[in-house]
């Protein structure tokens, strides 16, 4: 059966198409929505996005493999992203990584066996004044200490969004609106 977008994503895509002077500009959003709907950007999922933006599958695959947050391989349903760039490194990001590795029983860059959580080291999150910084899905956690790792993992396992993130009040508590979630 041919892949499709969720109804929500479809609506978001259609309104975006009207917004841009050239159709091709919807390629990156189309890839993000496809990834959100189908888990990761397999060949078939990339083809779905390519058709929306009016580009070839090869072009779309080139874009999908360029950006760090577009994933062509399997990823967890939740992402724990620990900034390990200089200011966070100075403030102890390595200890945060170690604690998450221990709790999740995976190495940095890995995904838990149940596919629930991926643990990733990321580059500068623009949060250097309150380092170390951790992003869990869409939410920033600033001045994050290794002791806080347990609560984050526990919440994700319980299907809750972890508390204590410094997201913007009023935003959707779990997912942002940028991909129509």
């Amino acid at each position: 059966m041919a892949l499709e977008y969720s109804q929500e994503s479809r609506q978001a895509l259609e309104s975006m198409k009207a917004e841009y002077p050239e159709l091709r500009s919807v390629l990156i959003p189309a890839l993000k929505l496809a990834q959100q709907d189908h888990g990761s950007l397999t060949k078939e999922v990339i083809a779905l996005a390519a058709a929306e933006a009016g580009v070839t599958e090869a072009v779309a695959a080139g874009v999908a493999t360029f950006y760090h947050n577009l994933h062509t391989g399997p990823i967890g349903r939740h992402m724990i992203m620990v900034c390990t760039t200089i200011s966070c490194q100075l403030a102890g990001a390595d200890a945060v990584v170690s604690r998450f590795e221990e709790l999740l029983d995976i190495s940095i860059g890995g995904t838990t066996g149940d596919g629930l959580i991926s643990l990733i080291a990321v580059e500068c999150l623009a949060c250097c004044g309150n380092s170390p910084a951790v992003q869990v899905d869409y939410d920033y956690f600033e001045s994050f200490q290794p002791e806080q790792c347990d609560a984050v993992v526990e919440a994700l396992h319980a299907g809750r969004h972890p508390e204590g993130g410094a997201g913007v009040p009023g935003g959707n508590p779990v997912k942002g609106t940028e991909v129509g979630a």
Partner: peptide, 8 residues
């Protein structure tokens, strides 16, 4: 992309 809440 990380500035999701800022985009909101």
């Amino acid at each position: 992309q990380e500035f999701d809440r800022e985009a909101v």
